[in-house]
Design a protein around this nucleic acid. Structure first.
Lengths: 104, 104
DNA sequence: TCATTATATGTATTATAAGGAATATTTAAA
DNA sequence: TTTAAATATTCCTTATAATACATATAATGA
């Protein structure tokens, strides 16, 4: 299924093998914001962009008419990254997601 | 050059031929927010998502390693859309952009 | 020029995200 | 189980985005 923005970014973070604390440090935001965002809570665009940059991802607006093409392009490659101790963080998750914080 | 998020969304709006007032009405946010955002100001993620939905675009986080591929995919097609009276709004702009509001 | 449409701003109030720091929970490794 | 690491939450304060108008400023077309 198509992951929401926060799900995708969490997956990205885990794929890079960085903790929320580390992501927060790199982006200059609080660990709290990382958690809030990843759980679907609301954050400001500036906060999102800082986090995105820390995770080396670009936030791109794609017309729905084009999303299909992207799917196939971004899909096919979704391996957690064999870095570090092979099982530090991340392995715990997948993309899992069930929370409460609401958004639009 | 690679347009920033707000530039891209403004271009999208104009390409669809909708005014800020109309975009605001459709998304349920204020025209003020549309203006603020398009000028590079900060807005909440929920506000951005509402606007994006109103403009029928998805906000997708793309790993930098993949952006190149997308470029070629999203590029090549950038025609303002021949809809409406052929010269209602939009024709006035292109993607233009120079403002003051800051962001991250 | 005048009227119209679109976008940028102004003010005041309210809602809420962010900052700071700590703590409670959950998850997994030793 | 004990420890450690990571994530979710809490409290309080402050900054600021969102709301609700109301205008002011363009930019267009008649």
């Amino acid at each position: 299924m198509k992951p929401s923005l926060h799900e995708a970014l969490r997956a990205r973070r885990l794929a890079l093998g960085v903790s929320q604390v580390e992501a927060a440090r790199r982006s200059g935001i609080q660990q709290r914001q990382v958690s809030t965002f990843e759980r679907g809570g609301d954050v400001t665009l500036s906060t999102l962009l800082k986090l995105a940059q820390a995770l080396d991802v670009e936030i791109i607006p794609v017309p729905r008419e084009d999303t299909a093409k992207l799917e196939s392009l971004l899909k096919a490659k979704r391996k957690p990254a064999p870095s570090a101790s092979s099982h530090s963080l991340l392995d715990r998750y997948q993309v899992n997601d069930d929370a409460e914080p609401s958004n639009g």
